[in-house]
Design a binder for these strands. Sequence first.
RNA 1: UGGGGCGUCGCCAAGUUGGUAAGGCAACGGACUCUGACUCCGUUAUUCGUAGGUUCGAGUCCUACCGCCCCAGCCA
Length: 570
Amino acid sequence: MSTENSGTGNFIQTIINEGRAQGDQRQIHTRFPPEPNGYLHIGHAKSICLNFGLAIENGGLCNLRFDDTNPTKEDTEYVDSIMEDIRWLGFDWENRLFYASDYFQTFYDFAEQLIQSGKAYICSHSPMEIKALRGTLKEPGRECSHRDSSVEENLSLFRRMKSGEFPDGRMVLRAKIDMASPNLNLRDPVLYRILHASHHRTGDAWCIYPMYDYAHPISDYLEGITHSICTLEFEDHRPLYDWVLDALGFENRPRQIEFARLNLTNTLMSKRFLRALVEEGKVSGWDDPRMSTLCGVRRLGYTPEALRDFCERIGVAKANSLVDKALLEHCVREDLGGKALRVMAVLKPIKVVLTNYPENQTEYLEIELHPDHPEAGCRKVPFTRELFIEEDDFMETPVKKFFRLAPGQEVRLKGAYIICCNEVVKDPVSGMITELRCTYDPDTKSGSDHSGKKVKGTIHWVSADHALSITARLYEDLLQAQEEMAVTMDPETGAEIETEKEGKPALNPNSLAELTNCLAEPYLAEAKVGERFQFLRLGYFIKDKDSTAERPVFNRIVSLKDSWSKAEKK
RNA sequence: UGGGGCGUCGCCAAGUUGGUAAGGCAACGGACUCUGACUCCGUUAUUCGUAGGUUCGAGUCCUACCGCCCCAGCCA
């Protein structure tokens, strides 16, 4: 549109451009390196779109690489879901699927090389001792007694480590860098540890496993990665990343670039938190529609197009940020608005009887499936004497500017006639409204209205005789809204004290509302699981996999924007 | 009080070598409307964390200060 591409793109693209300007001829090569220890979430989508996007836009390639160097946390269950999610998002790694574990032997060989050149040594101090010797943020660390062991001794020990002679934790291979470095990561970091654990791919072939800081730069180098993009917390690790590449004498090295991870308002995306929700049964599973996992939002009904658009709009930078979820919802509405077919369903039905409409008559009205796409055609919607309309579309004593149905007031029934409410029937005991007795104006039929009448409101409806019973699930944030967080006042100072502290975030008790008395037009009977629709005036819905033949279930993906409810509050 | 980052409108975010603050979301007006949706116009930073300095001119350069994030796993 008018954006004109804003020229530069993000700062990483700028780095790529500068590299080329300086003569770097290499084809751009990135990689998405998830650890298979959990499900992907929206935050990962940003990284996926960034890495694959950069490759695509620069005529380069992007690999998928599982960073599986810690057998105690990883599982194939996760690698399958991760691949499914990336494909669903719309990206393809073609034949470039790798595992860090594919390089275990190579990592090992390079480690021996480091030992040979005196750049790494075996340290048999305990974890506690190593920690103590590392120093603190302010105090430098101290070199340990093993630092000056001979190459022969180190090599021998390392080989014995590999052959399984020692128990977990007995010793480690460390890089010999600088115990006094102000960067803790450079104080002789651990490169290899002993882990007698079965790896999801290599089984029991190894009992020593490389650390991320050692394996990652080598993996990148081996795959010919040019730009290794990761999140901000690894910024301090970059000197170590470069040290490894340097110590091994690699040329044409990859360059690590860090960006700020995504945070969404009122959404927690840590694997720890998501896992807890699943394990504590707070949600139905990793794909519960309230989860911020990709499988969760997929089931909620979000589209990959919307997610990709969102990732593009939030930009990429180094400042920690908190993106308003409203932007995500905007992207979802924009995508769905253009393609979801419109149908009518009533969430909270209230009966309407058209007293002047013939008892046994049924008219099949042709109503367009999409106002902006005539080619989408129409469906036939049955119209009869008894109908149901939305509870919210009637007010016994209407407030000002209420353009819907009220005693003595007219509204148009979408695609049908204009009706007028003449009588409100209530249950004598409860006083609840049981029925609205109305009259319709035969001259106002949609498409052939000669009445000249004009009404301000049009509402959706469903024929009582033909209505399809459905369940609708309406979702809200899983977390208690920020404003509702308990806050107490310090009696002395008047300062605010957060009651909910660091502890567990409060969950929203209304995160799921299941409405089982909903009625939909018969057209929806043919809907398939996964199909999305716009329920006129209510929002976008997707047929959920929990549906049964007799009881279709629809998740509300996102509501329509509603300026009325806002105005109403004033 | 060591090191590494970051601070441009309520939320994201552009701002090439200093030349006089893009865009999106949200919000608010209004038009349109057989979805109070969509669309459509219009409004919203004399100001870029603060204070100085250099300069004809600074968000962009210099100095100092303030604030926020990350780092002491044999996790990634």
